[in-house]
């Protein structure tokens, strides 16, 4: 049998027979993404004020990022799959961030946290800040704020979860 999409899966007689006998049919991608979206491993990258809110989001009992399954902050880019680009991307930092991102294994996502990472923010006028992280990295979710509140960071991560699951 050839299954092209989800509608096929529901209508196919063989699949129905299997499901009646307790066998669950799905795509590998779907079940992998289901797992990925519920357990991002963010990279411990910090540049300015936003990472303090990230630390609070991860460390404060009030916010508790662990309830979403995103609490495994990794210091090594090879173990992480989510780069939270927090803080301004300065000219000196840009090659470092780019290299860190290249070291991360696929699949990987980038979340721009705060106005500095989105557009340069208040430091856009300066000579040493890039006008946004998207000039060097592909960014999936933009979370505005200066700095971003922990709740807003969670919202951004849940949007990314929806994106990974194909709902956005």
């Amino acid at each position: 049998m050839v299954l092209k999409n989800e509608a096929d899966l529901k209508e196919d007689a063989d699949v129905k027979l299997l499901e009646n006998n307790g066998v669950f049919c799905t795509w590998f991608d779907k079940i992998w993404n289901w797992g990925r979206a519920r357990s991002f491993w963010p990279l411990n990258y910090s540049c300015n004020c936003c990472p303090i809110e990230m630390l609070v989001a991860g460390g404060a009992p009030r916010f508790d990022i662990a309830r979403y399954g995103y609490e495994v902050f990794r210091a090594s880019p090879r173990q992480a799959d989510l780069l939270v680009l927090a803080g301004p991307v300065t000219l000196k930092m840009a090659p470092v961030v780019r290299r860190v991102w290249l070291q991360m294994a696929e699949p990987k996502w980038v979340l721009a946290m705060g106005n500095c990472a989105i557009s340069g923010g208040p430091f856009r006028d300066g000579y040493s800040v890039l006008p946004g992280g998207d000039s060097i990295l592909p960014i999936d979710v933009y979370v505005p704020g200066c700095p971003v509140r922990p709740e807003a960071l969670f919202h951004g991560m849940l949007e990314l979860k929806a994106k990974v699951e194909g709902k956005r």
Partner: peptide
């Protein structure tokens, strides 16, 4: 220098009141 955001130079193009939020950062 990895977080150098040229704040001192930005100050020269902002009025005295406009620069207050930069100091907090």
């Amino acid at each position: 220098g990895y977080v150098h955001r040229s704040v001192e130079k930005i100050a020269e193009s902002k009025t005295f009141t406009q620069f207050i939020p930069y100091t907090a950062r």
